[in-house]
Amino acid sequence: MSENTAVDEIIICQDVCKWFGEFQALKDVSLRVKAQEVVVIIGPSGSGKSTFIRCINRLEEHQAGTIVVDGIPLTRDVRHIEQIRSETGMVFQQFNLFPHLTVMENITLAPIHVRKLKKTEAQEIAMSLLNRVGIPEQADKYPGQLSGGQQQRVAIARSLAMQPKIMLFDEPTSALDPEMIKEVLDVMQELAETGMTMLVVTHEMGFAREVADRVVFMDSGEVVEVGTPEHFFTNAQQERTKTFLSQIL
């Protein structure tokens, strides 16, 4: 991944607010992510972690505050939204592979229809990505024929096929059987080592400790504490953070 030197901070969120009806899901959330940084977001369920990263590629619309992705302000301007979406990949908890398309077709769909690549080019890219996530032999199968871990690795390959600058992970291992979690985390770790900017919502504390540059703790729609993994797991300052960590560790 080539680093964009013009914009050092690739994601800038300032005072982002989001309401679902009366309920305020995000309260003045601010976070700046540098290029090639891996940021892990943790927090209890309902704390707004997923909502927050879904705002970054506009799967949810934020109602107040500023989001700037790679120098592009995220507003109602559909062209900006399109640009930002083409630069960010997203991996979902439920994989969301397209069940009526083969693994190969899942991965080549967006490159062909959005990037307008030739089919052969797109297939070459897809094959190299499948090699990278370790399942080249599954190319012609349908998602329903794969295990959960394999499906999630296909989903990661599918996002990477658009050659995004940023990858958003929304609890990528939460729907997996325990023995399959590692194969997905390994792929994510390898991706982090290549210098991908990653924003990861997860409950995998091992991953946070080993791979993250920074850890963000959210609770009740607010960012409570931000710090390096060492700081977090040995020296958390906030009472809420300590309570949460004591419950899960």
């Binding site: 799967l59 399109e82 979406r85 990949g89 979902f92 969301n96 229809h113 959005v114 989903a155 599918r158």
Partner: peptide, 24 residues
């Protein structure tokens, strides 16, 4: 989730309807 995945990949609403939603 199907619509969200297609949207996140940058497909337009029409492409999403034609390539993802309608066939299913």
């Amino acid at each position: 989730g199907q619509r969200e995945a297609a949207t996140a990949m940058g497909l337009t609403p029409t492409q999403t309807l034609r390539l993802i939603i309608f066939p299913q």
